[in-house]
Amino acid sequence: MIALIAFKEKIRRKVFFAVFALAALITLIFSTGAATVTINGESVTDYKILMPTMLTVMNAASCAMAVALSLNTIPKEYERHTNQLIFIRGVSQSRYRIQLAIANITASLVSHAIFFSGLAVYIITSKNPSELLWAVPSYMYSGIGIVIVSLCTTCLSIVFSEMAAGVISVVIMLIGVFYPMIELLKGIAGGLSGKIFKALLFVLPNLHGIQSAAGCLITEHTFDLHIMFVALFYVYLFALGIILFRRKED
């Protein structure tokens, strides 16, 4: 019930108009052939190359939206002292926060679905309708990454101020989305920098890996069990964090 109310409040916000507009823009760009990937200086419009690129762009946008939708839910509720009203009714703070986190996740996944529908449109306009069936499991798989971002942001918003939580969430999201680039930097850098990159790669979730695996479901019809288990473990850890972390007002 708390989750439903919080979710309804979210969808009333104008941010979803931005989601629709962005999804439509990205779909238009890729479906009309305006988007191309350059390989060795030559433009490529092949579906098998552009589809993963579009998936990357959609996922990055979904992750950013997940941060935006999840960031101020809990701080706002505590600011309005709604938590005290809930506590009086016998609902524990941790259960209350879990309900708010569920609202955040639901809103993030709805936003992700809007972006993914753009991908579905691209698959159809690229005359590959047979791959549309694979878009559903791909959405579910990539949705795990969105859940991770949402839960991570929610977790951080419990402990830190809204600004700090936002900055840290964005940094974690960017590292996750550009995971291969950080791996490359780790390979090139030595000494302390190399160790720092190595530590970041070990601790932070590989959102790019999740998105790639989701893409492989569509293009190669392969399912990566290992990445799924690792992603679900991160969901588990962040969910635990929401239960265990305390806000100073508690």
Binding site: L225, H226, F229, V230, L232, F233, Y236, L237, L240
Partner: peptide
């Protein structure tokens, strides 16, 4: 139950890791 879920997911991640 919570611990079991965590152990299950961690085990799944370890045993499915390509070696």
């Amino acid at each position: 139950i919570t611990a079991a879920i965590g152990i299950g997911l961690l085990s799944g991640a370890i045993f499915t890791k390509p070696f």
